[in-house]
Each structure stands twice: as C-alpha cells, then as structure tokens.
Simulated assay, not measured.
Amino acid sequence: MTAPKTLARIAGSLYLIVAGLTSFAGLVNTRIAESGDAAATADNIDTSATLFRIGFASELVGATAFLLTGMALYLLLKHVNQMAAAAMVTFVAVSVAIQSMSLLNQHAALTIATGQVYTGAFGPTGSDQLTLLFAGLQRDGYLIAQTYFGLWLLPLGYLVVKSGYFPKVLGVLLVIGCFGHLVDVFARFLAPGFGADISLFALTPAAVAELSFIAWLLVKAVRVPEPDTRVTAVAHSGPS
C-alpha cells in the first residue's frame, strides 16, 4: 500500500505538469487564433504549424496527466468519503474526455490551414473560414470541459476539509474556485463580452487555490497525525 505522503507528492507532481502544459497550450492557441479574423488565423497556423502541433501535444499530455492526478487523489482521499472521491474522479474523467475530443477540432484546423487540397476545394476564403470555425470549436469545447474542471474542485475541497491532511482553508479556497470556474463558463456563453471582461477576476480564486494546493502537496505532502503515545503507554502498563 502506497504511503499517503508518497501519493500526495505523486498527485502534486502530476498536477504541476497539468498546470504547466495546459497553460502553455492555452497561450499558444490564444496567440495563434485571431477571433473573428479567418485569414489571420489560417496564416498564423500555417506559419507556426510546428508550434501549433507542440501546443496540441502539450494539451493531450496535460489531459492525460489530469486524469492520473484525479486517480492519485482518489487513492489518497477515498477513505474520507468514497462517494465524494468517486464524484471527484468522475468529474475529472468527463472533463478529460471532452477536452480530448475537442482536440480533434484543433487538428482539423491545422490540417485545413496547412493543406493545399482544401484551398483548391473551397477556395482561399472558404478554407480560411473553415480553419477559423474549427479553431473556434476547439475553444468552445475546452470551455465546456472547464465546467467539469470547476466541478471536480467541489468534492475535492470537501475531502480536503474533512481529511485532516491539509489546512481547512485550502479546501474552502478550492470550493470557491469551483464557483469561479462556473461563473467564467456561463458568463462567456451567455454574455461573451461581459464574460471576457470578468474572466480574469472569476478565475483568480481558482488559480490561487489550485497553485496553493499543488505547493502544499509537493512541499508538505500531508499532515499525518502522530500516534497518541500516552494511550500506548497506558496500554503497555496495564495488567498482563
């Protein structure tokens, strides 16, 4: 049986990989895809095809690492409440499935932007519009997956509070982060302009919570209660 401290550090290492790779992939996509400008988006993807491919691979590896993070935390925290731990890892699995499938749209955008056959079939304007369409579908798919990136923090926060392994404030921050993700998702879909304006504010609590949790997992791992030596001493001093 793997020790709690070892599981915690494995989870923290995987979570750090998730944060690094998905942030890099998001930065690449943001810099290359020009919202509303099909020609610029297609040209950027074509001229930065290698970087776009690296971003694709980074997000795929990050999604895999996220699933493994959820599994490691399930093993660490299932003794606290198995139903909550199962809900946590289910939300992770759903988010990873949606995120991975949305990467097909990113690959389609890359294929169209770099393939002359599509320019010949649809013309330069039609090809560029298809590239923008698939790039937008990838972005929207990631936003849908973000719903579950948020929801997994709710049972995780509960387990963190109840486990005794971590400061309770970490669990509270994770729960607040859950609602920050949900506000960001629904604001972006229901009122895109307003959602874009408040996105940074909505996601800041989640970023603070998750980075703090990663740091605790890596540095402190878990707080394992010391055995009560007084009880042990009384037990040994009793009648034989």
Rank of each mutant, 00 (worst) to 15 (best):
W152I: 07
T69I: 14
G180N: 02
F52N: 00
V183D: 01
A221H: 04
S212E: 00
L14D: 01
I17V: 15
F66Y: 15
A49L: 13
A221P: 04
H79Q: 09
A84M: 11
T90C: 13
S13I: 14
V117P: 03
L200K: 09
D228Q: 08
D184A: 15
G150T: 03
T30K: 12
Y142D: 01
K168R: 12
M71E: 04
G195D: 02
F194L: 14
A93M: 15
R139D: 06
V185M: 13
V219K: 07
E59N: 07
A39R: 08
V172W: 08
P155W: 07
F24M: 08
P167Y: 08
L159D: 00
V231E: 03
V231G: 04
S240Q: 09
Y142T: 00
G20N: 05
L217N: 01
F213W: 10
R31F: 14
A40C: 10
P4S: 05
L73G: 01
A42Q: 08
L75N: 06
A65C: 14
S48I: 02
M101E: 03
M88Q: 06
L218Y: 06
N81K: 11
L143Q: 04
R139N: 06
T6C: 09
L133D: 01
V169R: 05
L182C: 04
G164D: 01
I32M: 12
I176L: 13
I144T: 06
L16M: 13
T2N: 08
T111F: 13
V219H: 03
A85F: 14
E226D: 06
F56Q: 05
F149L: 11
A57P: 04
G195H: 09
I144N: 03
T229E: 06
H79C: 06
L211Q: 04
I176R: 05
V185H: 05
G123T: 04
V28P: 03
F52W: 11
L217V: 07
V61H: 08
H107W: 15
T131C: 15
A40Y: 09
T6A: 12
Q82C: 07
V161C: 13
M71K: 05
F179W: 10
A221L: 12
L159C: 08
S48G: 03
L16F: 15
V117T: 08
G150W: 07
N29W: 12
H181G: 00
L156S: 00
R223P: 00
A206R: 01
V234S: 07
L143T: 02
A19Y: 14
